[in-house]
Simulated scan of single mutants.
Amino acid sequence: MLDVMPLQTAVDALADRLRSLPQSALGRGAAAEGLALARELALRAQRLEAPQRAPRAMPDAGMFAVGDQLAVAGHDLVEALRGAAPDPAPDAKAAPADELAEALRWVKEAAGRC
C-alpha cells in the first residue's frame, strides 16, 4: 500500500497557507497558482477513479476559495491513490507510485512559488 501521508500533509500545509494569505498576495499570483494545482490534482484523481469517463474541470470559485479547492482536490487524489491497484492497467499513464511522487513534487514546487 502506498504511503500517501506526505502528499496529504503537503497539500494541507499549502491549503492552510493559501487560506491565510492576504488578498494582495493572492492577487499577485498565489491564487492562480493554487487553482492550477487544484485543477491538476482533481484531474489526476478523476482519471484514477473513473478512467473511462471524461474528467470535469474544477471551476474558479474565486481567490478566497482556492485553499479549500486545493484541499478538496488533494484529498480526492490521496483517496484515489489509496484505492488504486498497485499494478496499473495497460492503458494507464503512470503507476500509482509514480502519480504520488509527481503530485508531491507539484505541491512542493507550488508551495515554493506561493
Rank of each mutant, 00 (worst) to 15 (best):
P86L: 07
R47S: 09
V72Y: 03
D87A: 15
K108G: 06
P6M: 09
Q8S: 15
W106G: 00
A45M: 01
A31S: 11
E99P: 00
D16I: 01
D98Y: 05
L21Q: 13
D60P: 00
P55R: 00
L35F: 04
D3E: 10
A13G: 07
A61G: 07
L18R: 05
A111Q: 13
R105I: 05
A13F: 02
A13P: 00
P90Y: 03
A84L: 06
A10V: 01
A71S: 14
F64G: 14
D12N: 15
A36Y: 00
P55M: 02
G112N: 07
D12L: 11
P88G: 03
E40P: 01
F64D: 14
L18Q: 02
L48Y: 02
R19F: 00
M1H: 10
T9A: 13
S20V: 06
K108M: 14
Q46A: 02
E79G: 06
L14E: 07
A101E: 09
L48D: 00
F64R: 15
G74N: 04
D91Y: 12
A38S: 11
C114G: 10
L104N: 12
P96Q: 02
Q46C: 02
G74M: 01
E79P: 06
A73P: 01
L35D: 02
P86S: 08
R47P: 08
R56T: 14
M5F: 10
E49D: 12
Q69W: 01
A94H: 06
A10L: 01
A10E: 12
A36D: 10
M1P: 15
E33K: 12
A89Q: 11
L41Q: 04
Q23E: 15
A110Y: 07
A65Y: 09
D12R: 13
L48R: 00
L43D: 11
A89T: 05
E109G: 07
A61V: 04
G112R: 12
A50M: 06
P22L: 07
M1G: 15
P88H: 03
E33Q: 14
S24E: 13
S20K: 14
L18E: 01
R56C: 10
D98I: 12
A92K: 03
A30M: 04
R17V: 04
D91C: 07
V78N: 02
A85Q: 14
A101T: 08
C114M: 15
R47H: 09
L26R: 10
A31E: 05
Q23W: 11
L81F: 04
A73R: 04
A54H: 08
L2R: 01
L14Q: 07
A42V: 00
E33I: 09
A13D: 11
P6G: 05
A95H: 07
A30Y: 04
A38I: 01
D68Q: 12
A45N: 05
K108H: 11
E99Q: 14
S20I: 00
A45L: 05
D98E: 15
